[in-house]
Design a protein around this nucleic acid. Structure first.
Lengths: 165, 165
DNA sequence: CTGATTGCAAATGCTTTGCACGCCA
DNA sequence: TGGCGTGCAAAGCATTTGCAATCAG
């Protein structure tokens, strides 16, 4: 999977008359080794702890290349910082549900939604190109049982919880 | 309509032990006099040309107050700068279609979509709180007839067109 | 060899904040 | 009179960019 993306990026890079470099390959490997969403800063941490020698500038430049090659997507999680999602390669049209209680993000696909959106778009005189749905919701488990594994885990790991709205 | 929002904000402000001020009222009036989306900077321009005496800091502080009071929403148009939408007061659950060709933003509501999202959310074990859909699409009119009024207008007004993705 | 890539630090752009002063309740 | 609100300028933060050195093809 990692290799597949590296190859695709390198093809893209070559097609633009640019070059294959070890830094880029290493950063790409670091990104696609997991399927978690991340910010540029979180990636920087990952890269450092993986002992990869690459500067922040190169991180940002590589992220932008990946976006341009459409191998990575920016997503809107309602945070202030840009968040990147490496999973669009496997599920090109997934959406996001964000738990307001613990910040956990679930990905989902639904063909009915897609179809419906498609119809709505056409009815308005447009040809749909891309659609993204973001649902913010409360955890039902937390509400009924008073606790939720994700929340406990989030607290344990000291993740910052969603800002209340 | 403007007055209604001003009153609501002032109630909110009072409930927090804060005060009613002429700057805030003026800025609120300036925002809700139109129904267009805007960035902080565009608001700053509007405010200046309306001859309102208020600093950038106050603009930002008022925007954040309005968000907190839920009288204004931040929306994701895929731009880098935060965009604000003053229309959630009238249509609390609308969505956005963004024309890739000219950048025009259309708002729409659809009860089927809402219902469907609601079901999907519950099936995943959550209680929906807020959902937002963003559709990026091409203009059918432009494709078939080779021209589109919005695009012409956008060019005339020197609006910057959507960055290609 | 040529020109793209990198790292560093400086620059940028948007937003927030500290502080002194003014003003509302 | 106390304390919130304001304006200003400075600080913050995430991201981008200029430049000289380095490296890929």
């Amino acid at each position: 999977m990692v290799e597949e993306i590296q190859n695709k990026l390198n093809e893209f890079v070559k097609s633009k008359g640019l070059r294959k470099t070890p830094q880029r390959d290493a950063i790409v490997a670091c990104i696609f080794a997991q399927d978690e969403h991340f910010t540029a800063d979180e990636l920087w941490d990952r890269v450092r702890s993986a002992n990869i020698k690459a500067s922040r500038a190169t991180i940002y430049r590589t992220l932008n290349l990946l976006l341009e090659a459409k191998l990575l997507h920016e997503i809107d999680l309602g945070e202030d910082t840009k968040t990147y999602d490496p999973n669009f390669h496997d599920s090109p049209s997934h959406n996001h549900l964000i738990c307001i209680d613990c910040g956990k993000v679930l990905e989902f696909e639904d063909s009915h939604i897609e179809l419906l959106n498609d119809c709505i778009t056409r009815r308005m005189g447009f040809r749909p190109k891309q659609q993204s749905i973001r649902i913010e919701a409360n955890c039902e488990k937390l509400r009924t049982s008073g606790s939720c594994p994700s929340l406990i885990e989030a607290r344990l790991n000291g993740k910052r919880l969603p800002k209340k709205r």
